[in-house]
Every structure is written in C-alpha cells, then in structure tokens.
C-alpha cells in the first residue's frame, strides 16, 4: 500500500485523465484534446501545489471513487458535488489530505457536469505526444477509467499544500450560456436571415453533447450556398453547421479538419462554462468583432 497510486473503485459514467491538451500536432490529424474546463484544472492543481499542467481526473455527471495507495493531498473542483473520504463528508473546492488506503468518493454533481480531481504529484500515466489527456475522438492517451484500473501518481510537490489557499473563488455553473461569437470564416455560406437567427434566437444544450462538440437544439440556420465545402482546418470553438442546420460548437476532442461551413467561432474564454452546461440549458450567441 506504499506505492504512489490510486485504484479505481467506481469509474463513473465517463471519467478520463486530462491535462491542458496535446497542441502542435493538428497537421497530423491529432486533436488538441485536454480538459473541457481548463480554468478549473489550473485551480485544482494550484490547490494541491501542482503545476497547472499536471494531469487530473475529469468526471461526467456522477463522479467516481478511488482508493488511495499512499497518503495524498487532493482537491475536487469544477462542478460542485459531494466529496467523501471513507464515507465522511470532506471539503469541495479546497485541499484535503487523504490517508493511505482511504476511499475518496466524488458524488453526483449538484450543479454543472464535470468535476475535476487533482492529486498531489499529478496522475503520472505515460504522456503521448506531450500530453496525458484521453482523446475520445482518436483514441490517444489513456483509456477512460474502468473499475479496478490503477493510476500512478507523480512525486508530491515540494510546496506546502494543506491550507495553501483556503477559499478560492469558483465560477458557478451557468443558468444560461451567453457565447460571444466572431462571425466567419464561412458566414457568407448562410442567408442574412440565418445570421439574424443565430444572433437573436434561443438555443438549448442537447443531451447529445460530448467532449467533441456542444450540440444545440433550436432553429436551423439556412444556407445561402448549396454544395459541399472542401475539408478545411478547424479551431476550438468553431460553430460548424451540418446539413440539418443545427449548429455544433467544437470542443477539445474536435476533429482537426471538417467539411461543413463554420459560421463563426466562440471565444475561448466562454468555453469553460460550456463544459458545465447541463442538457436543456438555454444558449444565446452574441456576435462580437
């Protein structure tokens, strides 16, 4: 029980290892991947004394549980959720010292979707192309968590951890997403009416959303140009419009190229809230220059 690792007791609906992503390889068809809510990752890492680039767990809706094989400082943030250590309530959003052999339980999110769990020393699975992130589109990085899987931890940071920061400010999960969007590069593939629709009408987060894209329910955007666009490079936050006219906002695991026209691009600063938006959340787009 002295090795630096945690063993998965309950994997949860979808729990993956994530860091800040795998950039610089898009020209080879490698998605950037990485945590959907990078601000939350930086904060949980700071709370346990890790560099912001350390790998953490990203849970989806119903959390997960792990048994520690060593004493370790942990912090749970992102979506607010109950945290228990050996059945006893523990603090969310701040550093918690957990003894070796304990079960750390991250419960179902009270609000929001994705909780982030940092361990002192970070999750030390082998990096692939410079990142430990699980990429669900192309299957790079470690597999999603499964029961009984063992995750190695890195050496604990030298900095003192407990009480390093007591009560950091956490943005609450959104009641409504207001996404600032810069039109283009293919806004000329849409009618003026479609661009007005995008700027004025309400959409809702579809339950079909995932790490690849935020799917939306709402009015279809009508194309001004028929035909096909040759595949072109895609960026994080691209609002791609497939033939059914319902926009999809590309998130971390998005494909590097795509053939449907991109009407605009959502500001990166607005995408953290997208990671925490539950299905049914109202969405508005605000065009900005």
């Amino acid at each position: 029980m002295s090795d630096r690792a945690v063993a998965v007791v309950r994997a949860g609906a979808l729990t993956t290892v994530q860091d800040l992503g795998r950039t610089g390889h898009a020209h080879l068809g490698v998605p950037r991947s990485g945590a959907l809510d990078p601000a939350a990752v930086r904060l949980v890492n700071r709370l346990v004394g890790n560099p912001g680039t350390a790998a953490v767990l990203e849970t989806t809706v119903n959390g997960c549980a792990v048994r520690t094989r060593c004493a370790v400082t942990v912090a749970v943030g992102g979506a607010p959720c109950p945290v228990r250590v050996d059945g006893r309530p523990a603090a969310w959003g701040t550093a918690v010292r957990v003894a070796a052999g304990s079960v750390l339980e991250i419960g179902t999110a009270v609000r929001g979707v994705r909780a982030y769990v940092a361990f002192g020393g970070g999750i030390d699975v082998g990096p692939v192309l410079g990142s430990r992130s699980t990429d669900l589109l192309s299957g790079l990085g470690p597999a999603p968590l499964a029961d009984e899987m063992v995750l190695p931890l890195g050496r604990p940071p030298y900095t003192a951890t407990k009480g390093y920061v007591d009560a950091p400010p956490w943005p609450g999960p959104p009641d409504e997403l207001v996404l600032r969007v810069r039109l283009g590069p293919r806004e000329d593939w849409f009618t003026d009416a479609a661009l007005r629709t995008l700027a004025t009408r309400a959409y809702r987060v579809s339950p079909a959303s995932n790490r690849i894209g935020l799917r939306l329910e709402g009015p279809a955007l009508e194309r001004a140009l028929p035909g096909e666009l040759a595949s072109e490079g895609m960026v994080l936050g691209a609002v791609q419009v497939p033939p059914d006219g319902r926009p999809v906002v590309f998130l971390a695991d998005h494909p590097t190229t795509g053939g449907y026209p991109v009407v605009g691009v959502v500001r990166e600063a607005d995408l953290g809230a997208v990671a925490q938006a539950v299905p049914g959340t109202p969405v508005r787009f605000t065009p900005v220059r």
Binding site: T23, G24, A26, H27, A230, S231, E232, G233, M234, V235, T256, T257
Partner: peptide, 15 residues
C-alpha cells in the same frame, strides 16, 4: 504559430 494545418484548398494558421 501553434498549428499550421493544410487541407484541400486552405491552410489554417492557429495560435
């Protein structure tokens, strides 16, 4: 630039 992504008739420069 962080990424240079060529495609069929375009090149994307990101970052």
């Amino acid at each position: 630039v962080r990424e240079i992504v060529p495609a069929a008739r375009t090149v994307l420069l990101d970052g």
